[in-house]
């Protein structure tokens, strides 16, 4: 993602508009682009979703299998998250194993899901210490136009919310819906000079100084955060971003379904 280039002219233009309180596409600072969610689109997956935020387009699938628990959590299912920045999605993405951008992306999504305790992993234990459900959460970016963090997170949440545990196929009784405990929502904002902008489009992301991703749950509690890029945020700015994130999360939860 860091390899995208933006011309000086465009950079200057973005700064100039921001100094007048405007964004390139006419949105207000805390306004998301239009979000669409199609859940359950992949029949071969246990759960799936395709999410678009503006032109950004991602597809997420959940595959489940029976396996061994980690020794330190013998009574819990396992969550494995993987994100691929496939070369289809951008002229700067290259084939090959996940680079550091893809790894940060998948770890941020994983942390939001895991730390919010969205999945009731204890209910995914079959025989303590021996057999548990393994969840593979696989994310593919199809089209990259900024804010992959949120697009991938919404895709993961929507996919998990329509996941069916394939118990019958593994002779573990009847199929049942994925046991869920919480409904986390994540937002991402960037700082460009002195402006804080939510849901950065690609051009904005390219000139951003700092980025902050915030995950909260349905009770309004904080569950995960990730600051990125070299620029600094003041504590006031951090608080402002968290407050706005909480305010936006209700509407986002309705859209994601």
């Amino acid at each position: 993602m860091a390899d995208e280039v933006v011309s000086q002219i465009k950079k200057g233009h973005i700064h100039k508009l921001l100094s007048m309180g405007r964004r390139m596409d006419g949105r207000s600072a805390d306004e998301y682009r239009s979000i669409t969610v199609e859940a359950g689109i992949i029949g071969s997956a246990q759960g799936s979703a395709r999410v678009r935020i503006g032109n950004t387009d991602v597809v997420v699938g959940v595959k489940m299998d029976v396996g061994s628990p980690f020794p330190d959590t013998p009574d819990r299912g396992v969550l494995t998250t993987n994100a691929e920045l496939i070369p289809m999605a951008s002229p700067t993405f290259e084939p090959g194993p996940p680079d550091q951008n893809a790894i940060e992306l998948s770890r941020v999504v994983d942390r939001g899901i895991r730390e919010s305790e969205m999945i009731d992993l204890q209910k995914l234990c079959i025989v303590e210490g021996e057999e548990v459900w393994i969840n593979f959460l696989d994310i593919y970016v199809l089209d990259y136009d900024g804010n992959l963090f949120d697009a991938c997170f919404y895709g993961a949440v929507a996919a998990l919310r329509n996941t069916i545990v394939p118990a019958e196929k593994h002779e573990k009784g009847d199929d049942y819906p994925m046991p869920l405990r919480h409904y986390p929502i994540q937002t991402t904002a960037v700082k460009i000079e002195n402006s804080i902008l939510f849901d950065p489009a690609l051009d904005e992301e390219m000139v951003a100084d700092a980025r902050l991703t915030v995950t909260t749950d349905e009770n309004g509690d904080l569950r995960a955060m990730q600051k990125g890029l070299a620029g600094a945020l003041t504590l006031d700015e951090v608080n402002e971003i968290i407050d706005t994130s909480l305010r936006l999360s209700k509407g986002l939860r309705e859209i994601i379904g």
């Binding site: 071969s44 595959k63 084939p95």
Partner: peptide, 18 residues
């Protein structure tokens, strides 16, 4: 050309990558 199957495109999860 790079032809790739997504990990969840088939009945048993396919390991990502070529």
């Amino acid at each position: 050309c790079r032809y790739n199957m997504m990990s969840f495109s088939v009945s048993d999860r396919k390991r990502p990558g070529p």
